[in-house]
Amino acid sequence: MTVSQVVFILLSIAALGGALGVVFARNLFRAALALVLSFVGVAGFYVLLEAEFLAMVQILVYVGAIAILIIFAIMLSRRMMSSETQPWNEQWVGAVVVAAALFAALVFILSRVDWPATEAQVPADSISQLGQALVSPDFYVLPFEVASVLLLVALVGAVIIAREQ
């Protein structure tokens, strides 16, 4: 087993273990902390794939902003901080069956796929190339602008929902 395989397995344990923690934790605060662990594991995958910029963004945005905001929201609302939630309800049997079937089907199919992979090296100045691609009309400036509309929608929506009556 190579070093990167060992690292991959450790990161997978962090990412999947964190995800399981989010689902099964009875306390919302602990669930949020488990979410941070899962995000960090995913950031590790990006480093392993030589996408350092993506890894930094993952840490900054998901861990630094989103998870911290969730934790703030939980701490600021007293009832959520102390109360225990019930992760199970009476429909769990059906849910387990469906989820397991989907998982089995995906594993069955995806394990036999011949994944196409390129031998190309990641360019050394990938960050500046990425920056230019984001604002270049031949690449991603249009989705970039459309994403700003999406953020506007989310902003307006959040204000409406959070506003006092």
Partner: peptide
């Protein structure tokens, strides 16, 4: 005509409809 724009457009319409 691109998976990226399809997804972004879908989220724009969905999030505004949720609200």
């Amino acid at each position: 005509i691109n998976l990226m724009t399809i997804f972004l457009a879908l989220e724009i319409l969905s999030i505004s409809l949720y609200v």
